[in-house]
Simulated scan of single mutants.
Amino acid sequence: MTTSERQKPVFRFAPSPNGPLHLGHALSAFLNRDMAEASHGRLLLRIEDIDLTRCTPEFEAGILSDLDWLGIGWESPVRRQSEHFPEYQAALQALIERGLVYPAFLTRGEVKARVSAYEAAGESWPRDPDGTPHYPATDRERPKAESREMLASGKRHAWRLDMRKALDLTGELLFWTEIGDGRTGEIAAEPEVWGDVILSRSDAPSSYHLSVVVDDALQGVTHVVRGLDLFHATSVHRLLQVLLDLPQPIYHHHRLILDADGRKLSKSEGDSGLGELRARGMSGSDVRRLVGL
C-alpha cells in the first residue's frame, strides 16, 4: 500500500451472511460507497461470518450478487472473519492475561431462572439497551482457584469482560466522534449499561464486539458507517479500543429503514429482500429511491 493510499479515508460495508440483504443493508451500502467517493477514500467489504452455524456460502454469494446489482464496488480482497479467528483469540488472550475477563459457566437457562426468581420477588434486574438481562455476578466473584478447576475439567464456558475492572483501569471518561443522523459531536460512552459483555463463546471463538474492533483496526478503517441500532454498542467498542490500544474511527450511525408497523427490517423475517426486488425487475437506481437517496 502506498503512502497516499494509507492517508485516504477508509470505509467498510460489513454484512453477515446469515440471510438475504434487505433495504436497510442497501441504505448502509450506498451511504458507505457515497461517502467514500465524496472523500476520495476507499471502500472495503468485510463478511462478518463468526456465527458458523447461521452463516453460509450461499448467503455470502447472494450478498456479492446483490451488491454488484446495486452497482457497488469494493477493494479486494474481501475480509472474512471466519478466516481470522487467531487474531481475535490473540486480543482475547491479552485481556485474559491482564485479568480483565473471566470464564462464565452459567447457561442461558440458569441465568433466565435467576433473573425470573429475582423479579418475581418484586425486584428489578438490570438490563442492557437491547433488553437483555445483565449476567449475574456469580462467576465474576467466584474464587480463581475454583474457576481454574472448572476450566481444567473442560466445563463449557464463555469469556466475559469484567466491566467494573475494565472501567477502573481506564480511569477516564470515554467519548466517540459522531457525525450521523442522531446525536452528533463528542458522545460520552456508557459501556457500563451493557454489563459484563461476552467476548467469546464455546460455539463462537469471538463475539461481534471483539471482532469488529480488531477488524476495524487491522483494516485501517477511519469511518464506521452503520445503522442507529448499533449506536449504543459503540460504548463497548470504545472501551475495547482503549483496553487493546486500538485507534478510534469516526462513527456515522444512519437512520433505519422501518416497515409499515415502525419495526426495524429483519433478515429473519425476510423483509424487503433485495433478491425479491430484483426479481420484480427493479434496478439499483430504483432501490436508491426506495431508501430515500
Rank of each mutant, 00 (worst) to 15 (best):
S4R: 14
R6Y: 06
R6H: 12
P9E: 03
R12V: 02
A14Y: 05
A14D: 00
S16C: 02
P17D: 06
P20H: 14
P20V: 07
L21W: 01
H22Q: 11
L23C: 09
G24T: 04
A26H: 05
S28T: 15
A29F: 02
L31M: 13
D34E: 13
A36V: 02
E37Y: 02
S39D: 08
R42F: 00
L43N: 00
L45M: 02
T53Q: 13
C55V: 01
C55W: 02
T56Y: 10
E58D: 13
G62P: 05
D66P: 01
L70A: 00
L70G: 01
G71E: 01
I72F: 02
E75Q: 14
V78L: 04
R79S: 12
R80M: 00
Q81L: 05
S82K: 05
E83M: 09
E83D: 14
E83Q: 13
F85Q: 10
P86M: 10
Y88F: 13
Q89P: 04
A90I: 05
A90T: 14
A91K: 00
R98V: 03
P103H: 07
F105W: 07
L106D: 04
R108M: 08
E110G: 10
E110S: 03
V111A: 06
K112I: 08
A113E: 15
Y118A: 09
Y118C: 12
A121L: 12
A121E: 15
S124M: 09
D128W: 06
G131H: 11
Y135K: 07
P136E: 06
A137C: 08
E141N: 14
R142G: 05
A145T: 15
A145L: 11
E146I: 11
R148D: 15
L151I: 14
G154E: 11
K155A: 12
A158S: 14
A158H: 03
L161T: 07
L161G: 02
M163V: 11
R164N: 12
K165V: 08
K165R: 15
A166P: 06
A166M: 07
L173H: 12
L174A: 10
F175E: 15
W176M: 11
T177N: 14
E178G: 09
I179M: 10
I179H: 12
I179A: 10
R183L: 11
T184E: 13
I187L: 09
E192R: 12
V193M: 11
I198N: 03
L199Q: 02
D203C: 07
A204V: 06
S206K: 02
S207Q: 00
S211E: 05
S211R: 04
V213T: 04
A217T: 06
L218S: 11
L218G: 05
T222H: 07
H223S: 06
L230F: 04
H232E: 13
A233R: 11
A233I: 02
T234F: 08
T234D: 11
H237M: 09
H237Q: 15
L239T: 01
L239P: 00
L240V: 08
Q241E: 15
V242E: 15
V242C: 10
L244Q: 04
L246D: 09
L246N: 07
Q248L: 10
P249W: 00
I250Q: 13
H252D: 12
H253F: 07
L256G: 02
L258K: 10
D259R: 01
A260W: 00
A260T: 09
K264I: 11
L265E: 03
K267R: 13
E269Q: 14
E276Q: 13
L277C: 04
A279N: 14
A279C: 09
S285Y: 06
D286V: 02
V287P: 01
R288Q: 13
V291Q: 08
